[in-house]
């Protein structure tokens, strides 16, 4: 296996762990963390493709990773703010109990 496919495989595994966490956990905070893990898997892909891509001197993959980290930080702040607002409203972060919009 080439080094690039090793990194891609690790990144795919990280993405699947994040997806499994986001889909199966009951706590809203951990669902948000699962989404963060998926974003991190994308960042690892960007860096791996930058390192083993045809033109690393252009720094495109690295720039994309830096911007993606900034957007993920903003997303985490807004997401946790929303979770705090939901908790104040309904006194729980358990997603199985947050079903007031369920038809």
């Amino acid at each position: 296996m080439s080094p690039l496919s090793c990194y891609l495989l690790v990144s795919a595994l990280l993405f699947s762990i994040g997806l499994a966490g986001a889909l199966t956990r009951r706590n809203a905070i951990l669902v948000l963390i699962g989404i963060e893990l998926m974003l991190n898997a994308a960042n690892l892909n960007f860096i791996a493709f930058w390192r083993y891509g045809p033109d690393p001197a252009a720094l495109t993959g690295m720039m994309f990773a830096i911007f993606s980290i900034s957007v993920a930080a903003a997303e985490a702040a807004v997401g946790l703010g929303i979770i705090l607002a939901v908790y104040r409203h309904s006194r729980t972060t358990d997603l199985d109990q947050l079903n007031s919009m369920k038809g």
Partner: peptide, 19 residues
């Protein structure tokens, strides 16, 4: 309480399929 949601098997299957 259990830490995984009531539909955790479905989520696990989806994540495994994606991987």
């Amino acid at each position: 309480l259990p830490v995984f949601s009531s539909t955790w098997t479905m989520g696990g299957v989806v994540a495994g399929a994606v991987f």
